[in-house]
């Protein structure tokens, strides 16, 4: 670095001021870069991305005659296992007024709590106000894992 003596004091102060400005700007800029990075490095509340969407769980974890709601993107999907042990998956959005349906073991069908809409285990609307069957999803079983995907 050059360290020369200025011709007069006024210039000296201006140089000093510039140095502070330069140093301050450098520190502030570094802070502006480093703060987001440090904050990014801090583990978030939920430490890692959840296994959502298409992976629906384990075959052994689901009893016969049971059903679970699985989040598929931004929509719920109901995965049901019937008495014969087969898996089926349907959109869990009731075709009547968009409530979320559920599996009812006592009735042996898919049921909507809002208006008692009923669908059989093939997704067909069998009673109550639903106008259409539930959209079906594809269930893929690879070994123990169940995954759900959209039907072609």
């Amino acid at each position: 670095m050059t360290s020369e003596v200025g011709p007069n004091g006024e210039q000296e102060t201006r140089r000093g001021f510039l140095r502070y400005l330069l140093g301050g700007g450098l520190v502030a800029s570094l802070a502006a870069v480093l703060y987001p990075i440090m904050a990014y490095l801090k583990p978030p509340q939920q430490a890692e991305v959840e296994v959502t969407s298409v992976k629906a769980g384990k075959v052994s974890a689901m009893e016969k005659e049971s059903g679970i709601i699985v989040r598929f993107g931004n929509k719920p999907v109901i995965l049901v296992r019937n008495a014969a042990g087969e898996f089926r998956a349907f959109s869990a959005t009731c075709t009547h007024l968009d409530c979320t349906v559920q599996f009812r073991k006592d009735m042996g069908l898919i049921w909507c709590a809002c208006h008692n809409g009923r669908y059989d285990l093939n997704g067909r609307n069998v009673a109550g106000p639903p106008p259409r069957p539930l959209d079906e999803y594809r269930v893929i079983i690879q070994g123990e894992d169940i995954s759900i995907s959209k039907k072609a």
Partner: peptide, 21 residues
């Protein structure tokens, strides 16, 4: 396939300044 999209979504929504990075 299962997590790529979700992890980016996670970075954008859950990680602080993840959207920025």
């Amino acid at each position: 396939e299962l997590l790529a999209f979700e992890s980016i979504q996670f970075i954008m929504a859950k990680v602080r300044f993840g959207w920025l990075i």
